[in-house]
């Protein structure tokens, strides 16, 4: 991937006010690059869900956003509790969201399944007590 645009974003855990900002910027960049609207929407949904999981469950994270002519990838690496059972977390409806989070409209347990649905490749690596790394890739064509 020689011709690659790269931008990184910092995401703060617990910061609901700024939640979704990285995804918004990513969307704006993709639109400016002339990426097909349907793909932009899939990236938007996937990156938004990944970003929100950091805001909800982790301390902080770096989101690395890369675009090449053939691929879009988003890597979110957080410092946080980690996910004890990734297979379980991937199941639709599974959630450990607190009542407060549910009050705000989160906790349907659909975030990770939605990322899966809206990406061409998804990898989740997690170390308990250290953090989680979510890698999402989409093909441009």
């Amino acid at each position: 991937m020689d011709n690659t645009f790269l931008q990184t974003f910092k995401i703060q855990g617990g910061n609901i006010y700024n939640a979704g900002k990285a995804s918004t910027e990513i969307k704006a960049i993709l639109k400016q690059l002339g990426i097909n609207a349907k793909i932009v929407r899939r990236v938007a949904i996937a990156s938004y869900e990944a970003e929100m999981n950091v805001v909800m469950y982790a301390k902080q994270a770096t989101l690395k956003f890369e675009v090449s002519p053939s691929q879009i990838s988003i890597t979110v690496e957080d410092e946080g509790p980690g996910i004890p059972d990734v297979g379980l977390a991937m199941q639709e409806g599974y959630s450990t969201a607190t009542p407060e989070m549910r009050e705000m409209g989160f906790g349907a347990g659909m975030g990770l399944p939605n990322i899966k649905k809206n990406s061409d490749y998804l990898k989740i690596e997690s170390i308990l007590g250290k953090g989680t790394k979510v890698t999402i890739t989409l093909n441009v064509n």
Partner: peptide, 21 residues
């Protein structure tokens, strides 16, 4: 009616985005 992208060709658009950054 999307706004004009930086370039019609994706690899050129990426180059321009890098420059913009």
């Amino acid at each position: 009616h999307p706004v004009q992208p930086l370039d019609e060709e994706i690899s050129k658009a990426i180059e321009k985005m890098q420059k913009k950054q």
